[in-house]
Simulated assay, not measured.
Amino acid sequence: MNAAPADQIRLLDLQAIDSKLDQLAHRRRSLPEHAEIDRATADHTALKDLVVAAQAQLGDTEREQTKAEQDVEQVRARSARNQQRLDSGTGSPRDLENLQHENESLAKRQSDLEDVVLEVMERLDSAQTRVTELTARLDHSTVVLTEAEGRRDAAFAEIDAEAEKVRRDREAVAQVIPADLLKLYTRLREQQGGVGAARLFQRRCEGCRVEFAAADLNAIKAEAADAVVRCENCGRILVRTSESGI
């Protein structure tokens, strides 16, 4: 392949621009906010699960308290009815005696149930406190996550604006490079880790950093000025300039 020396030198300008775009893309991918957001998201998700579990436990405990209070009320009501009959003296002596014994049992039952109510109330208080604490932590984690996402988005906007300007510069350079030379450069760039063209600078390929022997330099020097030379070591387009040392 042949291409005017000026077009080959333009490849170095294009390579510099493409390397800049690669750096910007890497910078975008490597923002410290990404790791911060990952951590904050994991914390937020874990806290959401804890809040849901705590709220479920609180609901269960509230229902348990309602049931325990209803049990106490039922015993109180039955004891009150029995007491009314005892006070009225209605019934046979045996019936009244049985009512008296039942009320004594109900008094013991009521005392036990009231102890249950107190125990459930203590657990309910703890459950409510846990929901409050976890909800506050969840709210804080939401703020942390939102702030991290805001910093990431601001960094994205800055990087993307710079990348857009660099892409416009690239278009201006790429459109004056012959299509076949540009196609070769693009293919080699994809194959060679982002570098498709490298300068021959003082006997060395700046793509792979290999220094050429004198015989190899003489062979390169013998090539026509418009010949597209490739580095025998890395295969990249080797662009000759006044600083090539040949």
Rank of each mutant, 00 (worst) to 15 (best):
35 A>V: 09
227 A>E: 04
79 S>N: 12
218 N>T: 13
181 L>N: 01
48 K>H: 07
184 L>R: 05
238 L>K: 01
191 Q>P: 06
113 L>I: 13
97 E>N: 15
75 V>Y: 12
181 L>G: 02
202 Q>A: 05
84 Q>W: 14
148 A>I: 01
49 D>P: 02
27 R>D: 12
217 L>T: 00
158 E>P: 00
182 L>E: 00
20 K>R: 06
20 K>I: 00
155 A>Q: 10
47 L>M: 03
107 A>V: 09
39 R>G: 06
237 I>V: 04
176 V>I: 06
67 K>Q: 15
31 L>H: 10
106 L>P: 13
127 A>P: 08
28 R>F: 08
11 L>I: 00
28 R>C: 02
97 E>W: 15
118 L>T: 09
230 R>N: 12
74 Q>K: 15
132 T>Q: 12
104 E>H: 13
9 I>N: 08
116 V>K: 15
47 L>T: 01
101 H>M: 14
10 R>V: 02
2 N>L: 07
106 L>I: 11
218 N>L: 11
204 R>F: 03
184 L>P: 00
159 I>A: 04
28 R>M: 07
145 L>E: 08
1 M>E: 04
158 E>F: 02
71 D>W: 13
69 E>S: 01
80 A>P: 04
139 D>R: 07
138 L>F: 04
27 R>K: 14
13 D>V: 07
7 D>S: 10
53 A>E: 12
210 V>T: 11
29 R>L: 10
61 T>W: 07
97 E>V: 10
1 M>A: 04
195 V>F: 08
169 D>Q: 08
214 A>N: 06
147 E>W: 01
62 E>G: 13
231 C>M: 05
145 L>A: 03
23 Q>E: 15
218 N>C: 07
159 I>V: 09
167 R>W: 06
128 Q>G: 12
222 A>E: 11
181 L>A: 01
175 Q>M: 06
85 R>K: 15
38 D>E: 11
186 T>L: 02
180 D>P: 02
161 A>I: 00
244 S>H: 00
234 C>D: 06
180 D>E: 01
216 D>V: 06
28 R>H: 11
179 A>V: 02
46 A>F: 06
96 L>F: 11
107 A>T: 13
241 T>Y: 05
239 V>Q: 05
91 G>L: 08
